[in-house]
C-alpha cells in the first residue's frame, strides 16, 4: 500500500491528502502555482501507484477556492487516472464542493462532470 501523501497548502497551492489506509482523498484551497507540472507530478505518481491496488471504494473530495487554467488541466489528469480504478472492478466517486454564488467553481465542476466517466456530484456549501 502506498504511503500517505500529504501536502500542506501555500498561498498558491492546495492542501492535498491522499491516504489509502484511512480512505481519505481530498484536494482543498487555491491552485495557481508558477509551475503546475512540478507541483502535481508527485500527486499523479502517487495515484498511478495507488490504482494498482485501490481500496474497494474511493471517494475524492474537491473543495477549491480558486484554480488557474493550467491547474485545470492537471485536475483533469487526476480524474482520468482515478477513472482507471473502475477497470479493476472497484468504485470511485468524486464530489465537487462550491460556495453558493461561486459561479466559476460551480461551472468548472459542471464541465468536469460532462467530460469524465465516473460518478461526479456537485455539492453546494
Amino acid at each position: 500500500m502506498p504511503t500517505k501523501l500529504e501536502i500542506k497548502s501555500t498561498r498558491d497551492t492546495p492542501y492535498i491528502i491522499f491516504d489509502a489506509e484511512n480512505n481519505q482523498f481530498e484536494i482543498k484551497g487555491n491552485s495557481l502555482p508558477e509551475n503546475t507540472n512540478n507541483f502535481f507530478e508527485p500527486v499523479l505518481n502517487w495515484i498511478d501507484n495507488y490504482i494498482k491496488s485501490p481500496n474497494k471504494s474511493t471517494h475524492l473530495i474537491c473543495d477549491f477556492e480558486y484554480f488557474n487554467s493550467s491547474s485545470a488541466k492537471m485536475i483533469y489528469n487526476i480524474f482520468l487516472e482515478l477513472e482507471k480504478i473502475k477497470e479493476s472492478g472497484n468504485a470511485i466517486k468524486i464530489t465537487w464542493h462550491y460556495t453558493n454564488g461561486d459561479d466559476l467553481i460551480e461551472e468548472k465542476g459542471l464541465e468536469y462532470k460532462s467530460i469524465i466517466n465516473v460518478p461526479f456530484e456537485l455539492i453546494q456549501k
Binding site: N35, N68, S69, A72, K73, Y76, N77, E111, I115
Partner: peptide, 11 residues
C-alpha cells in the same frame, strides 16, 4: 482540457 499531451509550454 482533454488533450493528452502536456505541452512543453504548459497551459
Amino acid at each position: 482540457l482533454r488533450e493528452r499531451n502536456i505541452p512543453k509550454k504548459e497551459g
